[in-house]
């Protein structure tokens, strides 16, 4: 028996490493994924790396725009064109600064518009939008700053998603376009209720459980209803598109164009829920910025 095991040990190892993960997957597939201690340990290792790469790339880009680009321009162009280039770059930098300031101003405005919620600003340090995986953003704020699971994440344009898992210094956001994300919404015009569920790709969501008899048209604005216990009411989720009213069945079919383009999000606001607010430290003061 031992000799047999020894002889086929490689085959047994391969079969073990194939069948055990498949069994674990099939056992867990029906349940919503929860982060285990092992997962969090891996994320504790990777999130500083993501932060490091993010800082490095930003640093290199800034160095390029601020120094190397100028040097190369000076070598190649005349004095006048160099001056024009410098001014153009300065203008671009100012435009970028202004755009960032505008984004932050809108975030602060949003935070001030919701005095009942404690807010925390955060920056995106990683994106994971793979076709077969969850649609996730990594933020540079974690449990150390009072971030907790299920906290809504928004920008001035609307809902981004909710906090999916947290490590000490970072957190993951399950985006509204993920298939596991389902947000209770109302049509702003008629107050009709429905759910918005992601389709697993950026820019894709669909409407669920909207009764066929409801008054709904393409272009209707969808806002959170506040009935799912996660998102406060009144946050913009998206607009109804490609509405189909079938002759039979209980519900309407429609796709939803999210108000927020998740591929362009750079800074976000995390909203503490009422329960979390009681537990949250001073870092979650209203209007706190990163």
């Amino acid at each position: 028996m031992l000799a047999l095991l020894k002889r086929y040990r490689e085959l047994i190892l391969v079969a073990f490493l194939l069948l055990v993960p498949l069994g674990v997957f099939l056992a867990n597939a029906k349940k919503a994924a929860e982060r285990s201690r092992f997962d969090r340990a891996v994320l504790v290792i990777t999130s500083p790396l993501e932060r490091l790469v993010s800082w490095s790339v930003t640093g290199v880009l800034e160095a390029w725009h601020g120094y190397v680009g100028l040097r190369h321009a000076g070598e190649r162009a005349s004095e006048l064109s160099r001056e024009v280039n410098e001014l153009r770059m300065e203008r671009d930098r100012l435009l970028q600064d202004r755009a960032e300031a505008e984004r932050l101003r809108r975030l602060v405005g949003l935070a001030e518009a919701m005095p009942e919620h404690s807010t925390l600003g955060a920056r995106v340090i990683g994106v994971r939008l793979g076709p077969a995986g969850r649609q996730i953003l990594t933020l540079d704020r974690g449990a150390d700053r009072g971030v907790g699971r299920l906290m809504p994440v928004v920008v001035a344009d609307g809902v981004v998603g909710r906090v999916h898992s947290v490590t000490g210094s970072s957190s993951e956001v399950l985006l509204l376009v993920d298939t596991y994300s389902s947000i209770a919404v109302r049509v702003e015009r008629t107050r009709a209720r429905a759910n918005v569920r992601g389709m697993g790709k950026p820019g894709g969501a669909r409407l669920e459980y909207a009764l066929r008899t409801e008054d709904m048209i393409e272009g209707d604005l969808l806002v959170t209803s506040g009935t799912d216990g996660i998102f406060p009411r009144g946050l913009v989720v998206g607009r109804v598109t490609q509405l189909r009213r079938k002759p039979q069945g209980l519900f309407l079919e429609a796709t939803v164009t999210p108000a927020v383009d998740v591929t362009r999000v750079e800074e976000v606001l995390i909203l503490a829920s009422a329960r979390s607010r009681e537990e949250a430290p001073a870092a979650l003061a209203p209007g706190a910025t990163p």
Binding site: G23, A33, T46, L174
Partner: peptide, 17 residues
């Protein structure tokens, strides 16, 4: 598996395959 946040075992199985 951890990075994609999919149900455990999915990518482990596929990676070995």
């Amino acid at each position: 598996d951890v990075m994609a946040a999919t149900p455990k075992g999915l990518f482990t199985f596929l990676a070995v395959l």
